[in-house]
Each structure stands twice: as C-alpha cells, then as structure tokens.
C-alpha cells in the first residue's frame, strides 16, 4: 500500500469525526510517512508497520464515541457510544445484536410507560378533585402524587440500569481493539 492509499483510507474511515481531529490524526501519519521516507524506508514497508488503516479508523472512531460517553452520560452520548460499538463491526457484536435490541427496546418501553404514568398521576392530581371520584378529593390528590412518585422511581431505576448497560457495552467494545489496544489499555496506576 502506498502512502496516499493509506491516508485516503484513514481519512475516509474517520470522515464523520470533527474535522479538526481528523486533520490532526492525518497530519500525524503524514509526518510519520515523511520521516520514514527521510530515513530511507519504503512507503509499503511503513504502511504495513502501521497496520490496516480501515481498521485503525474504525477503532479511532469507536474510541471517540466511547470517550464522549465517559465525559458526559447523556442520552445522545449513549447513542454515540452504541453506534461506536456497532461501528467496530466485530462478528460477535452482530450475533449479540438481537439481544441488545431486545434489551434496548424494553428499556425504552419502560421509560415511556413510566412517563405515561407520571402524566396520568399529574392529571389525576390536577383534575381528580373536580370529578367527584369514589375516593373524594383527598383520594384523588394522594393517588395523583403516589402515581407520580412511583413513576419517578421507575424512571430513576431504569436510568441506572441503562447507564450500567452502556458502561458494560463500552468495556466490551474496547476488548475488540486490535490496532489501538497496546496504547489504549487503561493504565492501572
């Protein structure tokens, strides 16, 4: 593989990262090829020492998605981490996919159910006292508050489970690094 092929493949693989980071990464490898050429090494030799650029790009890509999640645990960074994970395209990930979809679907379902319950509680609390329900005014107020509290609890628990799931996914994804692995292994200090 020539230097241009290597850089092209790397750049293509990184295309949806921020342009600044892509340029930084690419500049590093460009400089590497230039320095190696100055040392009298052939482009093909250097490219093979650097490893498969597509694989490298996939792993750099995955790492940036996983880092986003570690910096800020938001729904959008969770989605970024999940896509980063799928982007690695390892075969066991594809086998796990149906199970993951099942779990993710259940979590989303529980979230929606809990939000629904919360709103139902709110409506009962606000409108119940005027509807002459069997429990009377106090029953409607207490029932409304109770429903909302239960919904908040379910939402909190589901959020904890979701965070835990995504963390597990991040850990599992990092097991799939081949090119980056020696450099990215967490250092136990």
């Amino acid at each position: 593989m020539t230097r241009n092929e290597f850089i092209d493949k790397l750049r293509k693989g990184l295309s949806d990262l921020p342009e600044v980071s892509v340029n930084e990464i690419v500049a590093d490898y460009e400089a590497h090829f230039a320095d190696a050429a100055a040392a009298g090494r052939s482009e093909a030799e250097v490219a093979s020492a650097l490893g498969d650029p597509e694989r490298l790009a996939r792993e750099l890509h995955a790492e940036s998605g996983l880092k986003r999640w570690e910096k800020a645990k938001t729904p959008s960074s969770a989605i970024a981490a999940i896509f980063a994970f799928l982007g690695l395209g390892a075969i066991d990930i594809l086998i796990l996919l149906p199970i993951l979809m099942g779990i993710a679907g259940s979590l989303v379902g529980i979230f929606i159910g809990a939000f629904g319950t919360f709103f139902a509680g709110g409506i009962l609390f606000a409108a119940g006292p005027f509807l002459s329900l069997p429990g009377g005014v106090a029953g409607a107020l207490l029932g409304g508050v109770g429903l909302m509290a239960a919904a908040v609890m379910v939402i909190a628990l589901t959020a904890i489970v979701t965070i835990w799931m995504v963390n597990a996914l991040v850990w599992f994804a990092r097991l799939h690094y081949r090119v980056l692995k020696p450099a990215l292994e967490p250092q136990s200090n």
Binding site: H32, A49, L50, V179, A183, L184
Partner: peptide, 13 residues
C-alpha cells in the same frame, strides 16, 4: 520492539 503505529493513539491519550 514496540509497533510504531501505537505511538500516535498513545500520544493523543
């Protein structure tokens, strides 16, 4: 005998 490609991710980290 370190693989030379590993230096870049390492330096970024």
């Amino acid at each position: 005998g370190m693989g030379e490609g590993t230096i870049y991710p390492l330096m970024r980290r």
